Structures are given as C-alpha cells and as structure tokens.
Simulated assay, not measured.
Amino acid sequence: MTQPIIRIDRLEKSFGSLKVLDGLSFDVMPGEKLALIGPSGSGKTTILRILMTLETITGGHVEVCGEQLFHMRRNGVERPADEAHLHHMRRHIG
C-alpha cells in the first residue's frame, strides 16, 4: 500500500489561550484531492500555514512524504526541527 503524502496525527495549535486545532488527524494519499471547508475561524488557513511551516504546532505530528515536518531524529532522539531541517522539508511542499 502507498504511504500518504501528508499525514497529520493528533495536531494541536493554540494562539495563547485559544485552541484552534485540537487532536486533528487525517491522511492525504497520492493523487487524492482534499477540500478544507468550515466557518470562519475553524482553522482552515492555520492548517495550510502549518504545512508551509509559517506556523509552528503546539502538539501532535505532521509528516510530509514520510518525513516529520516539525521534528527530527538526532542520535536516536526525537527533537524539534532546526532551520536546516525545515528548509529541507520545504522542498516537498508546493
């Protein structure tokens, strides 16, 4: 089976005390079309900004092409992504 090109797992995003994304999970498979719909303030633009690395996440995981977007493994330990990793990952996003 093909792996997802985007995997969002238990994503959380807060702006101060306002939690705009709370435990969001979904996969986007190659060739699949996905529409984000919802009322104003429901987090649609925030999801896109997260995928473009214009926003950081409060919790959860985001994978693009099988690689963690905001985390990286260094010496067997998962750590927050550094700028070099984010730069590398931006090449997969368009």
Rank of each mutant, 00 (worst) to 15 (best):
T45I: 04
E63N: 12
T58L: 05
S14R: 11
H71P: 10
L51I: 09
L48V: 08
T45V: 05
T53W: 06
I5D: 11
H85M: 08
I5S: 11
I47E: 01
L51A: 08
T2Q: 15
P39T: 11
H85D: 07
R90Q: 13
T45H: 04
I8Q: 00
L18S: 10
M1V: 13
D9Q: 06
T46Q: 06
H71M: 14
L48K: 06
K44S: 06
E55D: 10
I47A: 01
P4S: 10
R10W: 04
I37E: 09
G66Q: 07
V20H: 01
H61E: 15
S40T: 14
L18N: 12
F15G: 07
T58W: 02
A81E: 03
E67N: 08
R91G: 12
R73N: 15
V20C: 02
K44V: 08
H61Q: 14
S42C: 13
G60R: 01
M1H: 12
A81P: 04
E63R: 12
I6W: 00
D22P: 01
L48R: 03
G94F: 09
V64D: 02
E67S: 14
L86Q: 03
L86H: 00
I6N: 06
H61N: 14
I50L: 05
R74Q: 15
T45M: 02
G66A: 09
L69S: 08
R49Y: 08
G16A: 07
F70E: 10
E12K: 05
Q3A: 15
F26N: 04
L18D: 13
R79L: 15
G31S: 07
I6D: 10
V20E: 02
V64P: 03
H71Q: 13
A84C: 06
M29Q: 13
L86N: 07
T56D: 13
A81H: 03
